[in-house]
């Protein structure tokens, strides 16, 4: 066995240990998640002063879907309306929506903290509000 193959074996072994350790950590987390499934970050958030909790059941798509995919939906909407002029979104229930951030803010804007709570919580920093006026900037 030459030096290089020894190095490869060591590398593979190290990688395997790392992956295995990570898998067990994640598996441990999985058990506790199911025990607290209802305790999800958005649903559990306290209502902000002056705003009632948002009734997300009336969103363009189910809440669970939007929670995971709102950024893809916004990206697609942006591309369609800005670049192709295709502004109408029809959801599976046949309801029509304007493909605009304003459609989202039409409901969610009534809670100025709606976007921020979750983004703050997840420590993500979207650049939307560099240009678009955020609900916190617009007088209610």
């Amino acid at each position: 066995m030459n030096k290089f193959s020894k190095f490869l074996v060591a590398l593979a072994a190290g990688l395997a240990v790392f992956v295995a350790a990570w898998f067990f950590m994640q598996a441990g987390h999985y058990g506790s998640v199911s025990a607290h499934a209802e305790n999800s970050p958005v649903a559990a958030a306290a209502p902000a002063p002056g705003g009632a909790p948002i009734d997300s059941s009336k969103c363009i798509l189910p809440t669970e879907y939007m929670r995971a995919h709102h950024m893809q939906v916004l990206n697609k909407w942006r591309h369609d309306s800005v670049r192709e002029g295709n502004r109408t979104y029809v959801n599976p229930q046949g309801e029509h929506f304007d493909k605009s951030l304003n459609t989202c803010l039409g409901c969610h804007g009534s809670n100025p903290m709606f976007c921020f709570m979750c983004h703050e919580f997840a420590n993500v920093k979207p650049t939307c509000w560099d240009c678009h006026l955020s609900p916190m900037e617009v007088p209610q």
Partner: peptide
């Protein structure tokens, strides 16, 4: 906070999935 921990766990699981 409890919520943040739960969220991170879920996110980690999602990445693994």
């Amino acid at each position: 906070s409890q919520n943040r921990r739960e969220f991170l766990k879920k996110a980690g699981l999602g990445a693994l999935a």
